[in-house]
Write a protein that binds this DNA or RNA. Structure first.
Length: 289
DNA sequence: TTTCGTGT
């Protein structure tokens, strides 16, 4: 029987060898992909990418990588749960005109630029046009107009209060600290059944939005805002301060997962405004009033 | 220099 075995072996050995080579390529390729993906994520987000504290279907997201920022896309909410990006004061690009809104085919959901038409809601950027364009250039600016970066926002919030906060981040906090990690996203109603119904087309409408500012480094600082949809828009910004813990409790997300327990407790447990110079900027008027 | 929608 040795002859027969060797015939089988002769027949299969080249196939196995080809399979082995293919597996090797796949392993090396996916290893390289994983290393590169991790490198990009680390460059774009300090202390890790937001993740869920306890996995639930509604905190589940997949990370979409863009030029200059990351978003956590939720297929259940048909929207993004967070956008995360870094800003640096030492490198600025000139900012060109606003490009058009674009569909993002990675979401799979048919979410076209006219998705919110006549709904009473604005297409509100999570990762902002101006700050990203100034920090990361024109290709990144175009990416901020992907529909995966939009959430339905009431006009008085988007064009007034939220715009004032974005302006203060770029004009005051960034020059003050030199570097910022920013994470912004929606907060949804506790009532899951209500959320299923409260939609613009396919997209679930948030009840509020958060924005977390972190100054990275050995002695990090953090400041967090929680802004409901139904604001007037002219309120002082510091009326909306909350702790990072509060936002984590409301969203089920862990925003800085690589932070040690002690560091997280100190940074996220309470509102600390010393050093931010809030009094000077809380009442600045918006650009479009 | 920083947000948008609507109507033409």
């Amino acid at each position: 029987m040795p002859r027969r075995r060797s015939r089988v072996a002769r027949r299969w050995r080249p196939r196995l060898r080809r399979l082995g080579i293919a597996a090797l390529f796949a392993a090396v390729g996916s290893g390289l992909w994983y290393a590169e993906e991790r490198e990009v994520r680390e460059r774009l987000s300090w202390m890790g990418v937001p993740t869920w504290e306890r996995p639930t279907p509604l905190s589940l997201h997949r990370v979409l990588r863009n030029d200059g920022y990351l978003v956590g896309w939720s297929d259940l909410r048909v929207g993004s749960l967070w956008a995360s990006y870094q800003l640096r004061a030492d490198r600025r690009f000139p900012v060109g005109d606003r490009p058009g809104f674009r569909r993002d085919w990675r979401t799979l959901w048919p979410l076209t630029p006219n998705a919110y038409r006549r709904s009473g809601y604005d297409r509100g950027h999570l990762a902002p046009n101006y700050a990203i364009a100034a920090a990361h250039g024109p290709a990144a600016q175009r990416d901020t107009f992907l529909m995966s970066n939009m959430m339905p926002q009431r006009p008085d919030l988007n064009r007034r209060l939220w715009q004032r906060l974005e302006e203060v981040v770029v004009d005051h906090f960034l020059p003050r600290f030199g570097r910022l990690q920013v994470i912004a996203g929606p907060v949804f109603a506790d009532d899951v059944a209500a959320g299923v119904l409260h939609r613009v087309g396919l997209v679930e409408v948030p009840v509020a939005f958060y924005k977390i500012l972190v100054v990275p480094g050995r002695h990090p600082r953090a400041l967090a805002f929680l802004m409901p949809q139904d604001v007037d828009g002219g309120e002082p910004l510091d009326r909306f301060l909350v702790s990072v813990d509060r936002i984590e409790a409301m969203t089920g997300l862990d925003f800085l997962p690589n932070l040690s327990e002690e560091a997280a407790a100190a940074l996220e447990g309470r509102v600390v405004t010393e050093g931010w110079g809030l009094a000077a900027v809380a009442d600045l008027p918006g650009r479009f009033e």
